[in-house]
Design a protein around this nucleic acid. Structure first.
Lengths: 192, 192
DNA sequence: GCGAAACAGTACGGTACAGTATCGTACTGT
DNA sequence: ACAGTACGATACTGTACCGTACTGTTTCGC
């Protein structure tokens, strides 16, 4: 064994990084369906053989590439539920406007609708993206700031739903005025 | 010209109907990416040649097949905005639970994110599905039941957003309790 | 019955893709 | 220096797909 377990051959790191980078690139541009191993190989300069040396299948590569997207936003702690919520909503709106993954997510949702393997990926991604809402909501519940019959899932749906709808379904701009109205509505649910 | 303009050969009607039916079938099962002309031909018993006689391309067939989905739900008229809204929300929730198109829409959204031709289809579909919310909201505005700064687009986003989010993103069940909370929130926006 | 139209069947050409196999080269850690 | 390893190039198998060309048959409208 030439490897001491922890250290990985520099060549491997280089190849994997190049492949993942180009996979991510194609993913952003064409969604899951837009990624082919041939194209990744062509663009990254890493031969197909080598790609299959590091990932057992196209799906495995896709999953690894997707798992790096949508890094968890920081959980705000402004002291009040309202403040936290505003911070989260505005951060989410900003991401939906500009982040690369905003263009990729629909294809993941579509794939999850059928492929069980990718449904797992979708679940992970969703959990990672929405976790801050859960944290903030639970904190508010503990402080008694929230109506008793509202859980984290309800708050998240009430807040993220309109933003998602706007981004992918109505495709209207996520302008400041709209975001402000969503915030206002969300804060209207406070108390019993 | 053997055709008198209005009447279409029975054979043509038969073929087109069979093709559209199978296209819709494949669409429901596999989304847009799951439809191939070869497969449609195989299942429908209509030869590929004939399919291409009636549609110039795969995209054209897809568009026609999609345009039949999501038939506009009836616009309720209960006399009050609240009543109308409850009826619409419950109808939408029911469709999201069971309708075939609920499984197809993500792939259309994904396609619309890139392909301009299919973006048009998406826009049509969205307009058709959401039109009732617009009608009901405008009626309420005319009666002065609605806060002045809320338009149809806002109401639709606030109501459909959480349902869509739940159906496609969190993938939690659209149970009666959840729908009831969405209704409750929506009605909380009434008045100034 | 007859002509025109629609049809099925089939075989293409061309492209794209997943994944495998082989072989010789270049690099890395020691 | 050297052994082990990663690598690129290339070719290949097998599949699936779009769209077209051709041939002969069925079937409709009149």
């Amino acid at each position: 064994m030439a490897r001491s377990g922890d250290f990985v051959d520099v060549r491997v790191q280089r190849s994997k990084a190049a492949v993942l980078a180009q996979t991510y690139e194609l993913l952003s541009a064409g969604g899951i369906g837009g990624v082919s191993i041939d194209e990744v190989s062509r663009r990254s300069g890493v031969s197909k053989t080598t790609i299959y040396r590091h990932w057992p299948s196209r799906a495995a590569l896709l999953i690894e590439a997707c798992s790096t997207i949508g890094s968890a936003p920081p959980v705000p702690d402004t002291g009040s539920f309202g403040g936290d919520l505003v911070a989260l909503i505005e951060a989410l709106a900003e991401q939906l406007r500009s982040a690369r993954w905003a263009a990729v997510l629909p294809s993941i949702v579509d794939a999850a609708e059928r492929d069980p393997e990718l449904a797992g990926l979708h679940a992970d991604l969703h959990a990672r993206l929405m976790a801050p809402f859960g944290v903030v909501t639970e904190r508010a519940q503990a402080r008694g700031e929230l109506a008793a019959d509202r859980g984290p899932a309800d708050v998240t749906a009430a807040v993220a739903g309109p933003l998602f709808y706007r981004r992918w379904f109505s495709r209207e701009p996520l302008d400041a005025a709209f975001v402000a109205r969503v915030v206002e509505d969300a804060l209207g649910h406070l108390g019993a």
